[in-house]
Structures are given as C-alpha cells and as structure tokens.
Design a protein around this nucleic acid. Structure first.
Lengths: 229, 229, 229, 229
DNA sequence: TGGTAAACGAGACGGTACGTCCGGTCTTCAG
DNA sequence: CTGAAGACCGGACGTACCGTCTCGTTTACCA
C-alpha cells in the first residue's frame, strides 16, 4: 500500500515526489470522507485540505475511487485477530472488531461507494480484491489454523482447492453478515448479536468443513466442547 | 411503492400529476442504469429518455438516490420463494434467485450506490429499509414457517422478540453472504456454492433456532433427514 | 388604451372577462417594474401580485413587452402642455414635465426595454408608435399652433408634408434630447438645462420653420422678440 | 477597453488568461446579437460560438449586459469625424455616420437593451458613461474646436464649467435626436433629415455658445457664411 | 557548483451536469 | 366559457467539479 499509483520510474531524474504530500493527501481524504461523505467529496477539496495542488493528486491517482480506496485500505490492515482461546471466541472477536471498523464513517461510506463504482469498473474490482478482500482472508486463515491446532476443526483436506472454497465461503459469510447487518439492515452489531451469529456459524462449521460439497454426514459435532467465553 | 415522493395533498386543485410520467421515469431510470451505471447516470438523461422535463423529475424525487431506489425496489419484489419441498432446497433456491437478481446490472450498481449514499443520509436509510429490507424478510418468514409446518424446524418460541432476532440474523446471513460473494469477492454464486452455503447454514440452523442466544444445547438435529434436492 | 389585446368578440357567450382583473394586472405590472426592473419582471410574479392566474394574463397579452407597453402607455397620456404664455416657456414646460415622467422608475425602465425589444419586432414597433409616439406629437402640434397664433412662428407652409417633417424633427429633437440627457448621459434635467436647451432650440426654430429643407437664408431671425420668461 | 472586467491581480500566479478567448467572445457576442437580438441572446450560445466554456465568460463578465456593452463599445470608437470644411458639413457628417452605426442590428439592439438594464443598475450606468458616452464627446469637442479655428464659433468662455455644459447639451441634442428618430420614431435618418436637423441646430448654436445660460444676445450670427457643402 | 529535469503551487481552460427558474401550454375543478 | 390552481415540456440560468493545460518556482540529482 506504500506506493500510491503509477510508475515512479527507476531512473531518478528531476525532483522526487514528496512523500509528505502522499501522506497529507490520504489523511485529507479520510478527513473529508468523514465530514462530507463520498458523493460530496471532491478532488479540489481534498487538494485544498492537503495543502496541495490538484495536479499533485492527479499525478498519483487517476480517479476519485482509487484515491479513496488507497486512503481506507490501510484501515482494514489494522484489523487484528488475537488468540482468544477458542474458536467461538475468535469468531465473536473478529465479528466485533470488523463491526467496529465499519462504524467509522470514512470506512463505511468509502467501502460501499468504491464497491458501487467497481460494479462497472473491472480494474477497480481487481484493485479492491488485492487491497482489501485478499488481505483480510488472512484473518480466516489464522483463526482456522489456530482452531485446527486446538483440535476444534479437522485438518485440511488433501484437496487444496477445496480448502480454498471453504475459506472463501466462511469469509463471505462472516464479512457479508456483518456488513449487511451494519449497513443494510442498519442495526447494531453488539455482543449479543455476535454470540448468536457465532452459534449459527459454529454449529454447522465442523460439518461443512469435514464434508465439503455438502454430503451432510457424521454427527461428531460437539458444540458443548467450545463454550463461549 | 405507489406514490413516488411527496404529499399530493388531498384537495384536488390544479392539474393532477401524470401517472404515465411516473411509469416512464422509473422505466427510463432502469434502462439508463443498465447502460451507463450509477455514476454516469444523470437526471437530464433520465428525463430525456422518459420524454419528460427535468422539472417533472424534481417535483417527485429530491435526489438521484431516491429516484434510483424507487426504480429498483420493485425488482426486489419480484423475488419469489416457491416451495421446493424441503428447507435445504428452499435455502438454495432463494440464494440462487437472489444472486440472479444481483447479476442484473441495474440492480447491483444501484443497490451498492444507494447504500453508499445512505451512510450519510438517515432518511434514505429508513427509506431503504422500508422499500427493500423489510419487504424481503417475508422470504425468510415464509421459508421458516413452511419448514416449521414440515417439522424441519421447531415452532416459534414464546418470546416474539426472540423470533424476530433469529429471523433478522438469518436474513442478514443469507443476504449478506450472497451480496458479499457476488459484489465484493466478485465470484459467481452457482449451484455448488449454494449447496455448500446451505450446508453451512443448516447444520447449525435448528440448533440456533431452538437455542437462541446461543446456549448451545440438545443434539437432536438430524440433517440427514433433509437431503438436498 | 382601454381594451388590452385580443378579440373581445362581440358574441357574449359564457362568463364575461373581469375588468377588475385587467386593472389589477396593469397596476401589478407597474408596481413590479418599479421594484425589480424589466429583466427580472416575470409573468408569474405579475399574476401573483394581481391575484390572477397566469392563464388570465396570456389570454389578454401575448408577450411581456406588450403587457408592459400597455401598462406604461397610459402614463404618457397624462402629459399636459398648459399655455405658459410664450413659446420659450412652453418649451421649457414640456421639457421639464417629460423629464419628470422619465424620472419615474417604471417609465424609464419600461420605455427603454420595450424599445430594445422593438428593435427585433416589427409589430411591437408599430404598437409603440401608435400607443406612445404618435399620441405625444399632439404636444408639439399644440405648442406650435399656439405659437403661431401668438405670432411667434410663421403660419404653416402650403405643403402639408413639409409641416409634418418639421413637426417630426422638433419632436425628435425635444424628446430625444430629454431622453438622452436623462437615461444615457444620466444627468438631471433641471430648470437650468431646460433654459439652455430652449435657447438652443429657439434661436434656430423660426429659421428652420421658415426655411425648411435647410437652404440657410435670410437673417430676419429676431430672437429678441421671444425673451424667456 | 482593453481589460474586460475584473482584477487580474498584479502578481502573476497560475495560468494567465487567454487574450484570444477575450477576442473570440466579443466577436461571438456581436455575431449572435446580429442573428438573434438581445432577448434571445444566451451566454451559452455566445460561449459555444466562441469555442469557449461558459465558465470563461463568467470569469470575465458578471452579466450579459456587461458583456454586450464591451462587445459593442468598440463599434462606437470607430466613429470618425473627418474635417468636411465647415461646421454645417461636420454636423451633417456626424449625424449620418452615427445613424449608420445605429442601423447595424447589433448596435441598436444592444444599446437600448443595455440602457434599459442600466435604469436599475447604477454600476452599469457608470460603465456605459465611461465606455460610450464620455468617449464619444470627443466628436463634439473636435468639431467644436475645429469650428472655432475656422472662426465659425467664438472661442471658449473663461468659465470651463460653462464650456462643459454647452458641450454636454450639444452632445445630448445631436445624439438624442438621431437615436430618437432612428429607434423610437422608427424613421430613416437620411441626408434630407440631416440637412434639416443641421439647420435647426446651427441657427441657434452661435447664440447659445456665446451667451450660455440663455441670455439671448448679439446678432453677429452669420449663417450665410457657412453654406453647407 | 551550476544545469537540468521533474515536481510543485496556482489558477485558467473546455466541458458536463447540476438544481432552479421562467415561459407558455395544458388539464383539472369550481363558478 | 371564465378563472384559479398547478402540472406539463422546454430551455437558459449561474455554479460546481471535472480532468487538463499552462505558468513561474522549487528542489534534488548529476556532471
């Protein structure tokens, strides 16, 4: 996420770009997002807040959506998943911290706007995957391998593609539920909801993990082994 | 969905508003959305396509987002949940038909854009709930009561609020997962994914339904009784 | 100037037009002209002030310029030329009273605006002549015949067309000078200026009257016979 | 007439304004005036004809009237008063060339419209004086001093203010008469009229010049010395 | 240490769309 | 049929931003 956009070209002729300007611009973008939202956010206003000329913005980012994506992507990287001792606690933890991130006005407004823009912009879609989606799957991977080490989940199946499918599914279910609850249903994601959601998720999780493709099998699920903290 | 926006005031003075204009505007909005997407959609273009003056648009809708919301909300009402014989099949069915709806360009671009706008507009948020969210919960309610009649799910608990919480949760999980998979992860929602998702959901569903709040109880869940169609 | 515009059609079918509406509209037009001037005067505003629907305006006048012309033409008819005893005094009198009329905001604003409009509208030009120009020539004719009776000016030449030419010339010189001083040079038309103008006009008047066509002749001019007073 | 409107601020920061745009805009304004007249002249049309954005117009001129004033003022500067040998010929010459200027559609429509606008706009009034009125008084001054050198008119009186009053009076009488004849009476200003007007003016001119304030004096006027050419 | 090439601020540029206003027409209901 | 009310289409308004383009001015490198 360091370099903003284009080819800083290996040859180092002329005055180098100002790193301070980069930082000021991204900070100004976040600040402006909080105050006016996406649709009233203008490049001119960002430039003014950052104490920078519009030229300087356009030299780095080709469009508003790319600038905003870079400005908020770093916030997603702040998400952490500390080991809370058991899978259920980890799930509730990630739900709550993701929800906290989505409560920040710059995050929620930017995320949905950039996604809206991406529905008609293939390049932006790729950039979102790279900057946000793929990077956050680490949380699912971490939690999952931790649970496997604890014996809460069976080890990876031999088919790596199957593993990827399950990870993707879990990621979409968790992230999707939190986003939908927060931004569409417009209801709070609090501890009670997180608990209820974790229950829903877990009671089926071992099954789906051990029987991917959905052949609905063995009753070795033992939810009573993972009481929530 | 009948009246677009304002108070046409009960007393009938002056020329009445043209219902034909209403219809033409909403149709033109959908058509334009398909062709140019949200961000390049202009009120002037909609008016032109509808054969209507811009004034006529602004008399009815105060902002682009409200117009677009009304234009696409009716598409969500077209969602049906026919009885497919068992809960698993119903879940897969609703997932696939919702995904099909989200594949339509006007739906996906409009939905995300309106949601983005709503993050800084309380009134719009309420309007979205009323026009889309609350109306689609009927699908969850229908499917659930059908499953209860079949004996696939336990009857409603005495606490009505608890029922509402569970319905909301299921709704957010299903809709959120489909939206996230489709628009964020940018992956196809096909039959395989629907099957996998249904498995994940169902293996825990009876549990969470019978033990809301997540006290993780009796193991009478018998998923093998509901093989997918 | 009584009937406003269109065919009051002798056949008297249905509800007759309201004469009160006519009066209210013209008065409202004058009042609005004073307050907002020509370019910001709108038909809607006039209708509102007059307590009348726009339809009622358009049923009577086809355009803003015609309405305004009718509204102010009546003011010009109020000009009087009382006998002040000698030609010089009559000239000064008409100059001052015409200037007073042009000081009224509705008059000056309307006159120039209607003239501007008339430069690209032949029909309006004719209407102005009929409603204002030709009607005010009576002042020149009155003053001239009075001066002839007093012996201050020679009697009409046998050629009637020549008389008309001279009357037109005098009219244009007097009216033009007052309008130009008032509205173009933007200087006050006071008694001193009127005196000076009358001197300029009179010292040549008998000559030009007796020797039309400008053959610049006999020195029998006797300005000392007509002291101002 | 050089700089159009605002303060381009002495320090030269940013891209300088395009002088070519200035010229194109004024030319486009004159062309559009000829074709559509004042009331149908739109800023957008001028901008389009000039190949310029509307912004560029508004950056220089605050209102249509100011733009049009600047566009036509230069036409007035083209008026010349060549020495025709005697005062009478000079008067007829200036009358005819001023009338020719007023026959141009852009001039007549613009002049009256701007004057109409100026009746409710003090700043515009000042601007008109500066751009047109005061600049054209040079014609009167030139003709007058030439006549004085020829001995057709007495030298300036010791009181400079008195001289100014007389010059203003003559200017208003000449310009006013021509404008009134052309645009109000809507009659042609031809050589015959010019001759008649010059006779009217001259027979009194030496008197009013030598006896300002109008004390009607010495009979040394010798019009027969200045036969028209 | 002086040249040079790029980045910088400022702001004008050609555009597009905005949301409003007004002109003139029409369609309703009430008299 | 008139009149008030007000919706209708069309089109100009003046503004706000867009993304680009000069300008004149730094600023770092490299010769």
């Amino acid at each position: 996420m360091a370099a903003p956009d284009p080819l800083p070209s290996p040859q180092r002729r002329g005055r180098p770009r100002s790193a301070a300007a980069d930082r000021a611009i991204l900070a100004a973008t976040r600040a402006a997002l909080v105050e006016v939202g996406w649709s009233r956010l203008t490049m001119g206003e960002v430039a003014h807040r950052a104490g920078v000329a519009k030229t300087t913005l356009y030299r780095r980012w080709a469009a508003k959506s790319e600038l905003v994506l870079d400005a908020v992507a770093v916030l997603f990287d702040e998400l952490e998943l500390p080991d809370r001792g058991c899978l259920r606690a980890d799930v509730e933890g990630v739900v709550l911290s993701f929800a906290a991130l989505l409560r920040r006005p710059e995050t929620k407004t930017a995320l949905m706007a950039v996604l809206a823009e991406s529905t008609t912009d293939q390049a932006l879609r790729a950039r979102i995957r790279e900057a946000i989606v793929d990077r956050q799957k680490r949380l699912v991977l971490d939690g999952r391998s931790r649970a496997q080490q604890r014996g809460e989940l069976p080890p990876d199946p031999p088919d790596a593609a199957e593993t990827a499918r399950v990870v993707d599914l879990i990621f979409d279910v968790i992230a999707g539920a939190v986003v939908h609850r927060s931004l569409v249903s417009d209801c709070p994601v609090d501890e009670a909801w997180a608990r209820q959601f974790a229950t829903l998720l877990l009671e089926g999780l071992s099954t789906v993990s051990s029987a991917p493709g959905g052949d609905a099998s063995e009753g070795d699920t033992q939810p009573e082994e993972h009481p929530r903290g």
